Structure formats: C-alpha cells, structure tokens
Computed example of a mutant assay.
Amino acid sequence: MSPRRSYDQYCSAARALDTVGDRWTLLIVRELLAGPRRYTDLHADLPGVSTDVLASRLKDMERDGLTTRRRLPPPGAAYVYELTGRGAGLLPVLQALGAWGEPELGGRRPTDAVRAHWFALPLLRALEGGTGLVEVRLDEGVFHLRAGSGDGAGPVYGDGPAPGEPDARLSLDTATCTAISRGELTLADAVRAGRVEVAGGTPLARELRER
C-alpha cells in the first residue's frame, strides 16, 4: 500500500484531492457505482490501467474508507469490491465533473475506448426530476439505471437489461446519446424529435414522453 501523499493545506478541497486526486481513483468510483465488481471486471472496464496501478488504487481506496472488499458465498467464492457510503457520496462530484467536462468531449477519437454504461451518468443528469428504473438500449449495448437514486442505498446503474420490469425503456442510437452527453441536445428534445423511443405505461414513461 502506497503512503498517502498530501498537499498539506488546511482546505477541504485539498483534503478531498488528497483522497481522490490520484489518477484512476474517480474512474474506479464510476465503475463501482454499478454495485459490487470483481477485480477482473474492473480491469476489463478500465482500459489503459495496469494491473499494478489498479491493485494499488483499490488498496488505497479501502484504506481511505471509500471501498470495502468481501468474499461472495459459494458457488461464486470470488472477492468483490464495493463502495462504502462515503464512496457512494462521490456520485454528485462525478455528475458535476461530467457536466463541466461536456465541452471537452468533442468527437470520438480513434484511440478512445467506449462502454455502453459510461453513458449512464450523463443520462442520470438528463433524467433529473424523474424516479424509477430505466432500461437503456444503445448500439453499444444495454444497461439500466435508477433515476432519482444517489442516496448511497444501492447501485445507480448496471450492465445488461433491468432486473425485473423497468419503469421505462429508452431506445436510441449512440450519436443521439453522445449529443445528450455533450449537452448539445436535451432528452426532452430528443424524444420530441423521435430520436429517443420511450416504452412503458408507468408515470415515469408518460412523463418522459410528455416533457
């Protein structure tokens, strides 16, 4: 475990960066907002991180009270990492950072990796005000998210179809989702333009169609 480096400044922003300012830490938090993950799954969804750096960051995050590690019962019997309440409290930080970074997104570079669930956080911002389980179908894959979550009580998104019947299903292409992520298009405008199909008969689905 690496010794903690500090800015040695009596400032809450500096103290926060002492804990989460290292490269990869906030992206590990992004992945763990989906719930418990195995080391191999984290490594697969963090292209570019070395195994040594990932292991070191996870140890640091456990030391700093952001994550815990536990062993799954048989037949899984694998170790998984998950966020503590303090770690889950970084969701609004990532939301604000993502919103601030929208102008930097630009076009996708040939070297850029992409995972469908990386669109979950910008879509959560776009769904602000709604509450419910939403399944999202993109060219890149399917994921689900929980609009109105973020209280640290559980995962805010996950890979694959929604567990159980979702309150709404969104179908859209990656170009539309990217435009929403960049802040170039609102979800409401995309729905009105027919670029997002909303399925479901729940209050949330009706609200999304009528915004």
Rank of each mutant, 00 (worst) to 15 (best):
G150A: 10
A179N: 02
G106N: 07
A88I: 00
L90R: 01
R70Y: 13
P74C: 05
G98P: 00
T68I: 13
Y81S: 12
P161E: 06
E82Q: 14
E135Q: 15
T131L: 11
L172G: 03
G150I: 05
G101H: 13
V156I: 15
P166A: 09
A162F: 02
D139N: 14
L91M: 07
G107A: 14
P92K: 10
D139C: 07
E140C: 04
A99E: 15
L133F: 05
E165S: 14
G132Y: 01
R146I: 05
Y157V: 00
E128F: 05
A126H: 12
E82F: 01
P166V: 04
T131I: 11
T176H: 02
V114Q: 12
Y81F: 15
A179S: 15
R71G: 04
L145S: 05
L83M: 08
F143V: 08
P166W: 02
A96Q: 14
V136C: 09
F143D: 02
D159Y: 09
G87N: 06
G85I: 05
V142S: 03
G160A: 06
P155M: 03
G158P: 00
R115N: 10
L83T: 01
V156R: 04
L138E: 07
E82I: 01
G98S: 12
A99S: 12
G129K: 08
V93S: 11
R108L: 12
A120H: 10
L127G: 07
G130S: 15
G76L: 14
V156Q: 05
L121W: 09
L121I: 15
P92C: 09
D173R: 13
Y79E: 15
P92L: 05
H117T: 07
A78I: 03
P73A: 15
C177D: 00
T176Q: 02
G107L: 11
P166H: 09
G150N: 11
A113Y: 14
P110F: 10
S149N: 09
P75K: 11
G87V: 04
H144E: 03
G129W: 05
E82W: 01
G158N: 03
Y157Q: 01
G164Y: 05
L138V: 10
P163N: 07
A126L: 11
V80L: 05
P166K: 09
A120K: 12
A77C: 06
P166F: 04
V114S: 13
P110I: 08
A113V: 08
D64G: 04
F119Q: 11
L172S: 02
E104S: 13
R109D: 11
Y79T: 06
P110Y: 10
A153C: 02
Y81Q: 08
L91K: 08
R71Y: 08
L138M: 14
D139F: 07
V136Y: 06
E104T: 12
H144D: 02
G85L: 13
G65N: 09
P166L: 06
T176V: 15
A113M: 02
E128Y: 08
V134L: 11
A113Q: 08
P155F: 01
R108M: 07
A77S: 15
A175V: 13
P73W: 08
G132C: 10
D167S: 13
F119M: 13
G107Y: 07
V80A: 14
D167P: 00
E165Q: 13
V156K: 05
R109I: 00
R169P: 00
A113K: 04
L94T: 07
D167N: 07
